[in-house]
Computed example of a mutant assay.
Amino acid sequence: MVKESFPDAHTTQIQNGRLRMLNRLREGEFPLMTFMAIPSVRMAQIVALTGLDGVIVDCEHGHIGDDSMHNAVAAISSLGVSPIIRIRGPSPDLIKRALDTGAHGLMVPQINSAEEAELVVRYSKFPPQGLRGQGSAFPAIAHGLTTPEYMASANQTLLTMVQIETREGVVNVDKICAVPGVDLVFIGPNDLAQSLLGYTPAKGDEPEFVQAVEKIVTAAKRNGKWVGRLANDGTLAKSMRGTFDSVAITGDTKAIQNWYTAEIETARS
């Protein structure tokens, strides 16, 4: 991996009004995201029109294949919201395929070491910074650019997010956060609780869990990275403002299920 210094999402001087998540993060505006697990262009449009800044197209746990991934990115980006793709892991082919949709951001789960984080950066950046290949017209379209314009800006404007959600990741979090090209560290609280406590979800006040979250936040800020996490609802998300730079509020499947459950209980009460 090339070790010289390059501009990144934190330091870039490039301006692109379509990159909503990046712009809100740079302005310190606490942008909000959610997860999308249902493969549907209409679902992508509905979620994107709620006022969110970013939609995480969940190709790790969601029911979303390549075709639906491409369609979701196109639908979300066309509505002025940032599509972010969560892939299954730090594999070069998964990174390439996700970024060729035109995603504004990449989220990679269960990063446990600096070496894994470096791999993510290496294959998400074009040369000379990395080894990403070029061959698709779709990324430029989702950024509202020509392909040459996209090639000149992508390394600086792509939001590269890595998830810390294991005991090993917490142990190595300082080294992970120090990797150049990692822009945002995202806490997966459910997997983190399972790894640390042996159950999920965490109650939220377990000392080991609280200390792990604090360690991740501190490491991210010390290394000049943004930090985010999952929140179950808007009230919890609001309480995290000031500690976190961004929060993902639940996901489409939970939102639908929770709304119907609550309303049906009310109707039958």
Rank of each mutant, 00 (worst) to 15 (best):
T50P: 08
T147M: 11
A140L: 03
Q13F: 02
P7H: 13
V213D: 00
A262H: 10
G169W: 02
L184E: 04
G251E: 08
S82Y: 06
G144N: 11
G133I: 05
Q257W: 10
L145F: 04
I76L: 07
G251D: 14
I264Y: 06
I46D: 10
F138T: 15
A114K: 02
S239M: 02
P109T: 03
T243K: 07
P180I: 12
A117M: 02
E4K: 13
V185I: 15
D67E: 14
A9P: 09
P7S: 14
F35D: 07
D58L: 11
T34G: 05
W259I: 03
A117R: 00
D191V: 09
S136A: 15
K203P: 02
L184M: 15
G102Y: 11
F6P: 01
R229F: 06
Q163I: 00
V120A: 01
E118V: 01
L158T: 10
G251W: 09
V213C: 14
V227E: 12
Q15R: 13
M43C: 12
D66Q: 11
I95Y: 00
L197E: 12
G89D: 12
V170F: 01
E206K: 07
E118A: 15
N112F: 00
K254Q: 11
T157I: 15
T218Q: 11
P83H: 08
Q194T: 11
L25V: 14
D66S: 11
A178R: 04
L106Q: 04
A262L: 13
T34F: 08
H143M: 00
I14G: 09
T166Y: 02
K221H: 15
S77C: 12
L230Y: 15
S68L: 03
S5E: 13
P31H: 10
E149W: 00
A48F: 07
L158N: 02
T235H: 08
S239W: 03
M240L: 15
G65N: 14
E168C: 04
P31Y: 13
G144C: 08
D245S: 12
T200H: 09
S239D: 03
K238G: 00
V120H: 02
E263Q: 14
Q15I: 15
V73M: 06
I84Q: 05
I85L: 07
M21G: 04
E165L: 01
G51F: 14
A154N: 00
C59K: 00
M69D: 08
G80T: 10
V179T: 11
V81T: 10
I164M: 06
A114L: 04
H63I: 01
Q211T: 06
I249A: 04
V41K: 13
H70I: 14
N223K: 05
L52T: 08
R122L: 15
K203S: 10
S40N: 12
P109D: 05
K3E: 12
A178H: 07
S40E: 11
A137E: 11
D183P: 09
K225I: 08
L119A: 07
S113M: 12
Q110D: 06
S153I: 00
R222F: 09
S124N: 02
E116A: 09
V170R: 00
T101F: 02
H61M: 10
N190I: 07
H70E: 14
E27C: 01
L32T: 15
S113N: 08
R26L: 13
A262K: 12
I176F: 01
A37H: 13
E214V: 01
G242I: 01
V247P: 00
D8Q: 06
T160R: 10
I249C: 05
E60M: 09
H104K: 10
